[in-house]
């Protein structure tokens, strides 16, 4: 991009100085533990606290049984739905921030990032207090219902039956809502950075040349924002796929995702090798997603 940036190959020493610390960090705290877990996935329990790494593929064989494949597929479906909803909700938000007056923009961005100031667990419990059968949402709906009932008595009609709270929590709906709530900022921020770089005169040109707003949006804004969309989708889809806390706290008995199953292998079932195999299948799936994306990115660059 810029001529001032030098190729790292011609400046090996300074590059090595800069890169050593992060590489060391990654090797020690990421690669090494993951390698241990990877080895476990080829092992079997030899006692309550011992794992014998025997090179067996039994764990993978068991992990590819339909029971676990179906949970993988369900997790993928939930993550995809979450990503899609985040995209649909996040795009207008990112657009609004882009086109807002410059003095408002930092405040709006702050608003997007504000939830990160609080721990995810606290935010999840706050959502649960909101959505419970005795929560604020049901309270509000109950008040409206009573109001409607009272209006009916005013005109001489029979009052409505007593309000029965809606079950908002502990089902798949709650899981998707919780995941969308948690991941929305991850979608909005890359979208915003893509839209911010977009040359606005192109939009004006498109409108001047007779294209409608919708056509301009679909043919100018969306293609130009594509890198941001792809980045947002990846950055939302991957954590959503491995979501653990939200389905655990907000989900019902049928809302388990693959991360919950993995957790049980490491804790209650005390079957670390199997848990490791499941974890690595999840990691491989994410690898494939990222590989697809970079292949696509390379193709775009080459074209």
């Amino acid at each position: 991009m810029s001529g001032a940036l030098q190729d790292w190959k011609s400046q090996k020493k300074p590059f090595a100085a800069v890169v050593t610390a992060p590489v060391f960090w990654l090797a020690l705290f990421f690669v090494a533990p993951m390698a241990i877990v990877w080895l476990y996935s080829f092992g079997q329990n030899a006692g309550p606290a011992d794992i014998e790494i025997s090179g067996t593929l039994d764990n993978y064989k068991r992990a590819t049984e339909w029971l676990y494949v179906s949970i993988f597929l369900k997790s993928f479906a939930v993550a995809t739905l979450t990503t899609l909803l985040c995209l649909i909700i996040g795009f207008p938000v990112a657009m609004a921030i882009t086109f807002a007056a410059p003095k408002w923009r930092p405040w709006l961005l702050l608003g997007i990032m504000l939830p990160f100031w609080t721990n995810l667990l606290i935010r999840t419990y706050a959502l649960m207090a909101l959505m419970g059968t005795n929560g604020y949402m049901n309270k509000g709906l109950g008040e409206l219902w009573e109001g409607a009932s009272w209006l009916r008595t005013l005109v001489g009609m029979q009052p409505l039956d007593a309000w029965t709270p809606v079950q908002l929590l502990y089902n798949n709906f709650a899981v998707v809502l919780g995941l969308v709530y948690v991941h929305l900022p991850f979608m909005v921020l890359p979208l915003y950075s893509a839209l911010d770089r977009l040359d606005k005169s192109l939009i004006e040109a498109s409108l001047d040349l007779g294209a409608g707003h919708f056509k301009t949006f679909m043919q100018i804004v969306v293609p130009l924002a594509a890198p941001g969309i792809v980045a947002g989708v990846m950055i939302t889809l991957i954590p959503a796929l491995g979501a653990y806390l939200t389905p655990d706290l907000m989900g019902g008995t049928d809302s388990q995702m693959i991360a919950n199953v993995i957790e049980r292998q490491f804790k209650r079932a005390n079957d670390w090798p199997f848990g490791a195999a499941l974890s690595f299948l999840l990691i491989y799936a994410m690898f494939i997603l990222i590989a697809f994306q970079s292949m696509r990115a390379n193709k775009v660059k080459a074209a």
Partner: peptide
Amino acid sequence: KFNSELQPKYEEAFTRVRAA
């Protein structure tokens, strides 16, 4: 009593129920 043979099977049954 922890039974290292049965415990994974018990959890699998539990997973099966929850996936149904």
